[in-house]
Amino acid sequence: MKMRHILLLVGLFPFLLVSCEEVIKDFSIQNADPQLVIEAQCSAQNDSIYVYISKTADYMNPVEYPIVTNAHIQLFFADTNILIPEIYPGTYAAHFNFPTNTAYALHVNINNDMYIAESFMHEPVPITNVSTSVFPYSAYIASYPDELFYDIHVFFQDPAETANFYRIKIWKNDTLLNNASHFIFFNDKLFNGKDYELLLQAYTFEEEDTIKIELMSIDKSAYEYYNTLEEAMTSTGNFSMPDNPKSNFTPSVLGYFMTYSSSTQTLVIKNEESTLQEYIP
């Protein structure tokens, strides 16, 4: 919950009645030289690792994001190391039965410059139950008088002995909900070791929609990356001083390397009373 956004909106409310907007000419963006971006995700769920290497593009008109080819990438874990080949220009991937509870190190060599990042793959945390209910304030959201809004309840048992970091992904009929407002990650600081019910509010679903929930166990560096990424994603720069997210690569680049394990559950929306579907691994 971004309290400050709510308050800002609330406070400006009477003034927004008189405010106006127009395209501005005397303000321009100075584009920086293209910067290296490495995004690497290794999943125990999908037994895969994907690495995307690209560069930053023009902010106002990103005709294309330059891709970086011919990188030499190696993944080290346990006593093993595997090469990750380039499957499309700028996309590198490999499949393996990746072990959980294991430390991983990624070495990316681009034109003899080496970028190294480490990540720890935690055990998955099973979702014990998922249900939905109708968001009780649907009626008051005057702009959408005919829509029903749903809450999703995700239940899981947080492991007590470790600090846990999570991300949740939601699919609606096999489409990942992936805009900024669906970017959900959290830690167990407030509920360590508890049987926890996570509430996700105000989703627009329709009857017979199939909803899939993925609970990802991520590590601390990924959580910190997301935490700082969110600011870069949502801040307009008008009322705060956003910074680039905190990468776990050395030397630092844009992007991050993350390993994760996950558990999933699906359900089908049935009228206002949604019911739990069978656990599908």
């Binding site: 995004e39 870069a232 720069g237 680039n244 992007g255």
Partner: peptide
């Protein structure tokens, strides 16, 4: 103010570069 000077893709989303 702090405004972006470029952008890139992470996690399927466009991210501002500062």
């Amino acid at each position: 103010v702090t405004m972006p000077s470029g952008k890139y893709i992470i996690d399927g989303k466009e991210i501002s570069y500062f």
